[in-house]
Every structure is written in C-alpha cells, then in structure tokens.
C-alpha cells in the first residue's frame, strides 16, 4: 500500500510535468491547428540555456533565462516560419516542425557532447519522509508548480482578453478576424505560452528524481510522451491535456513498478491506442463531422 501511494505521488508529479507540455501542444493546436512536433526541441533549448548560464547567473537566474528563451524560440518559429506560409495546410506545417525539430535537437545534442547535466538542483535528489512514505521533492514541487500554472492558464483562458480572443479564434477564425481580433497576435501569444511551459517542464524532466538522467537526447524522447498525453485527452481540449498528462504520468509510474521499466514507455502509448480506438478524437476532443 505504501509503495502504491508513493507511486501515485510520483505518477501525479510526472503527470503534472506532462500536463504542462501537453497544454503547450493544445494551445498551439487550438490557435493554429498545427501540431508542433518541435516541442521536444523547445524543451532542449530551454534546458541547454540553463546549463550555459547557470554558472554566471546562479540557478534562479538561469532558470528564468531558460524559460524565457524557450518561449522566445517558439515565437521566432511562429513568426519567421509558420506565419509566412499561409498557403500550406496545417498538416504540412506539422511536417515542417518535424524538420525543424531534427535541426534543433541535433545541434543541442552536439553542443552537449558527452555531458549529461542535471538541471533541477533546487529540488533534485532531496527526498523527504512523510510518515512511512519517501517522497521525491522534484515531484512535489512539480505538482505545486503545475497546479499554479494550470490554474493561472485556465483563469487567463477564461477571463483575460487574450483568452477570449484565443477561444474566439479557435471557434471560428474568420468571424474572429471580422470582430477585430488580431489573429497574428493571438497565434504568437499561443506559441509563447507553449514555449514558456516547455521551458518550465525541462527543469523537472532533466533531474535524478524524474528520469534519472540529465539533459540529453533522452530528455527529448521523454518530452515525446507528452504527445500521447495531448492526444488521449483530445488535441483541442485544454482540460483534456491536463487529464491526459496525469494519465500518462500514472501509467508510466505504475507500469514501471508492476510490469517492467522497459515496458513503461510502451505502456503509455498502448493506453493512448486503446483510448483512440474507443474515441478517435480523444477523451474530451470535439468529434470531427464530415460535410459531404
């Protein structure tokens, strides 16, 4: 029972991080209908800048630099590449982000070379005892940060001008434009938010507690697990992203313990397949209707 409780806490902690990443996918998808395959490279860039700057700025300063630069990179991608190709459809643009992802990932991995730096020194590897439970601080902080950010996001999405504009654009692009909503600004902000969230997520991923490995190619493939999170929740549902993130986190933690560590990564994707077969648009996604 204690192991199980511990696993649940771990799973929710991981899930919170996946939720941040999945939320990024969903925000971008809602704004532009593009699936951003380069999300993993945003994660890597954020993490890499933390590594580079933390000696001179200290960890807190470096973390801020990392988060902000992941956000800026996302905006750059949107402004310089995606917004320039209005003719290409959303699926081609998704392919474009794959190309981008290859370039950025290879470059960061080359720069890292043989080093595998850990990032989360503010909370990493300091387990605390609560009753009979050993809890990892990384996961606890992740749950806290995740809860705060997700709440802030939902409040902004519900009440702020940006949120209203964003939802209007997701509902009907032309009508929103006719109402005076500046589509380019909404889209750019969506990418910025997604980038910032990715920058936060990496501070938890490249830790001893979360993955047992520092910033490396492996970080990128962990970020890939946010895909099933976003997809199984439904690509156009923000609540779905959070639920999906938690499902992925719990699946990974539980299957690693009760089945095998090797299987845990496949388990996440298997769960997604099962959900997709039952509900092709994810748990909370809107069903596409076809007009003949």
């Amino acid at each position: 029972m204690e192991t199980f409780l511990q696993l649940v806490v771990n799973g929710v902690g991981k899930g919170a991080v996946f939720a941040l990443l999945a939320l990024g996918f969903v925000v971008i998808f809602k704004a532009t209908e593009v699936v951003n395959f380069a999300h993993g490279s945003l994660v890597l860039v954020g993490g890499y800048l933390v590594v580079v700057t933390r000696d001179s700025l200290g960890w807190v300063g470096a973390a801020v630099v990392g988060i902000v630069s992941a956000g800026l990179l996302a905006i750059l991608v949107e402004r310089l590449l995606l917004s320039r190709s209005k003719l290409a459809d959303a699926n081609s643009l998704a392919l474009l982000t794959i190309g981008l992802d290859v370039i950025i990932t290879e470059e960061i991995v080359r720069r890292l070379g043989v080093t595998v730096p850990f990032l989360g020194e503010a909370w990493d590897a300091q387990p605390i005892q609560v009753g009979g439970l050993t809890l990892f601080r990384t996961h606890l902080v992740a749950i806290g940060v995740g809860a705060v950010l997700v709440t802030a996001f939902f409040l902004a999405f519900r009440y702020s001008d940006w949120g209203v504009a964003m939802r209007a654009q997701a509902e009907n692009r032309e009508a929103a434009a006719l109402m005076g909503i500046r589509s380019s600004r909404v889209t750019a902000t969506a990418w910025l938010v997604a980038g910032l969230l990715a920058g936060v997520a990496v501070l938890f991923i490249a830790t001893q507690d979360f993955s047992g490995s520092g910033l490396s190619r492996g970080t990128h493939s962990i970020a890939l697990a946010a895909f099933p999170a976003a997809i199984l929740g439904g690509l156009d549902s923000t609540a779905g992203a959070v639920v999906g993130g938690l499902v992925v986190g719990l699946t990974e933690a539980l299957s690693a313990q009760y089945i095998s560590f090797d299987f845990s990564k496949s388990a996440v994707f298997l769960v997604m397949l099962v959900v997709l077969v039952a509900r092709p648009s994810g748990l909370f996604g809107t069903r596409e209707s076809t007009r003949v």
Binding site: V35, N91, A94, L224, F227, P228, I231, L235, D262, F263, K265, S266, V268, F269, L270, M272, L273, L276, V277, P280, S281, G282, E288
Partner: peptide, 23 residues
Amino acid sequence: VAGRLRGIYLGVASLSLVFLGLY
C-alpha cells in the same frame, strides 16, 4: 486502428508502434 484515425491522430498513434517495437 488506422482506419479509425485521421491525420495527426494517426501519425501519433503509429508512433506507438515504434515504442512497441523497441520493447
């Protein structure tokens, strides 16, 4: 599975086969 899904959903669903293959 493929018959039920479209576009990006299918792309990500097919990604799961690579992970299954790895396992």
